[in-house]
Design a protein around this nucleic acid. Structure first.
Lengths: 335, 335
DNA sequence: CTGAAAGCGCTTACAG
DNA sequence: CTGAAAGCGCTTACAG
């Protein structure tokens, strides 16, 4: 915390300009990575910023950016809003947007669940296929990006199917032969894709996942715990479980433990997201970069605002192997 | 969504000034509720704002406010950051701050958990008595407000003790005579106060709460579920449970149901917070206004920035009675 | 490749 | 009680 500095000392673009002996316009160009700045000049400016500890004023940037537009974020339901994933996404998208010179605002919901007001562009969180917000927005041709999958609007999502596939590969390679899956109730395309990918991956090795092996974890740790525990009590006997979110995976692990099933000895558990503060250092999971999702969402929005076509972006995911999964020797009894 | 309007049409203070036939300065004065504006003029301005649908530009306000200061919000740990309460608070405090002309920024943590940088003022979330951030900030005399209780810094909190007391009153009045309490592990002063208040309220009627009746719910629905279920399986026999958060109350209710204990017939459950999307329409709980907490935090910060003394604010809470609590006739068997 | 200047939407002394 | 004007920190045509 050595960089404590009272507000009055705020160093501006002018200080940097002076330090680098250029005009403020040039500093701005460097700051925004605009092409056409002499590399040497650029280096000088960068160095001045560095040594002065310059940090741009977002409010000023917002105000002077020509586009001068407000992008809103709107969540489908209060329940969605309480998900840790949402909090993280909110944090990233607001930063990303401000860094790009947009104004950012979280849009509240009217009693009927529709956005209270419509900004110049909208990011939709927690939308489903038949989401009533979509036709409305399309009718008003409001630039919109949806987090997830939808075929009528631009959207950005992690490669859910590939994530599921990677999980299947991982588990099969570890010697597992019987599997269960915990979803959040199949409301979103994303979890469906995770399931489909998982099934596909299993099928490739001759395994299949029957419908009884799909549990509804309500997208919460508690929901997953209860679903898993009930399943175990009914005699569910599998050696590996794939949950569509880290929270649900945590719940499943807890249920297993409480039922006397050791993770990973008797049961391997895999999550999805790799959320900080949830996955911990134990859960094997599929990492998706929330920062990249936010970044891509802004890009798609920018394109639409510039009159471009709708399109979608799918981001790669990575399997992070930790200690909640292990080789299955077939020797342990489960349940 | 009838107020859809492209960015180019953005109506500014100038439009309002023109509409009300005053100068922009006057509009600004009205906007900020500054004293010394002729009531008639004010009415005219207000009406113009109204009819034009004027909405002030936060970026511009931030930029031109004289104080021109940045307030940061910093959370103690990633786990705290994932709590729904945090997400709500973040949303309110950022709005509040911007409306007051401050810049707002969420401060990230360094690997050691300390804030990555120090703005002109700081709001601390999820702090405990021995929080290492506090001495550091005090040493640098950074204006700081803590959400919760602490005796070295300004702080703002709901009247946790009174909340606990009200719950006790409510339950006693309903005829309950045996109680349990679910806490998050006694890390924060707040939950301790809730417990103390609860105990005090019970004591007033000759009831007491032994230590075995205090369960650790880890401040999550899953944690509370497991604690409650274990307790029920061990034969816990009480007719009322007070949980220090809505999430934990939800977990306790689920555990009761799974154990064949009917809520509220056999068991009354009370939460704390009245969080949207969690308490639902069923949980009796203690409502604290997150908006007011945020508002007060900003006030305390402003005072410190103006050179005022540290002080603390305690906000009133309200018991919201729903259907998770009911009269206890002593006739039902529990567990 | 770079500088001088206007402007983003607001607030606030300073006059009157 | 109100207006005219400067200024908050930045970006971006417009010249050169």
């Amino acid at each position: 915390m050595s960089d404590f500095r009272p507000a009055s000392d705020r160093i501006t673009i002018h200080d940097v300009a002076e330090g680098a002996r250029v005009s403020t316009g040039t500093v701005s160009r460097v700051l925004n990575n605009r092409p056409g700045v002499n590399p040497r000049t650029k280096a000088r400016v960068l160095e001045a910023m560095q040594s002065l500890g310059y940090r741009p004023d977002q409010a000023a940037r917002e105000l002077s950016f020509a586009q001068n537009r407000t992008i809103g974020l709107h969540v489908g339901s209060p329940v969605e809003r309480n998900r840790p994933f949402f909090a993280q996404f909110l944090s990233h998208i607001s930063r990303e947007l401000r860094d790009s010179g947009f104004r950012f605002e979280e849009i509240r919901s009217r009693p009927d669940g529709m956005p209270e007001q419509i900004p110049d562009g909208l990011v939709l969180f927690g939308a489903h296929e038949a989401d009533p917000r979509i036709p409305e927005l399309r009718a008003n041709s409001v630039p919109t990006v949806l987090l997830g999958r939808h075929n009528e609007v631009s959207c950005v999502a992690a490669d859910d199917a590939d994530g599921g596939r990677q999980v299947a590969e991982h588990l099969v390679r570890l010697g597992h032969t019987s599997f269960a899956c915990i979803l959040g109730g199949l409301h979103s395309q994303g979890e469906f894709d995770r399931l489909t990918g998982f099934r596909g991956g299993l099928a490739r090795h001759g395994f299949e996942l029957s419908n009884e092996m799909i549990l509804d974890g309500e997208f919460t740790s508690l929901g997953a715990y209860r679903a898993m525990r009930r399943a175990l009590e009914r005699g569910l006997s599998v050696s590996a479980v794939f949950a569509a979110s880290d929270e649900m995976a945590i719940g499943a692990m807890a249920a297993a433990e409480d039922h006397g099933v050791r993770v990973p000895l008797d049961l391997s558990v895999v999550g999805f997201d790799d959320m900080e503060g949830i996955a911990g250092d134990r859960l094997t999971t599929v990492r998706q970069s929330i920062a990249d999702l936010a970044h891509s969402a802004v890009e798609l929005l920018r394109e639409q605002l510039a009159g471009g076509e709708r399109r979608s972006i799918t981001l790669p995911v990575t399997l992070i192997v930790r200690t909640s999964t292990a080789r299955y020797w077939g020797g342990h009894e489960v349940s």
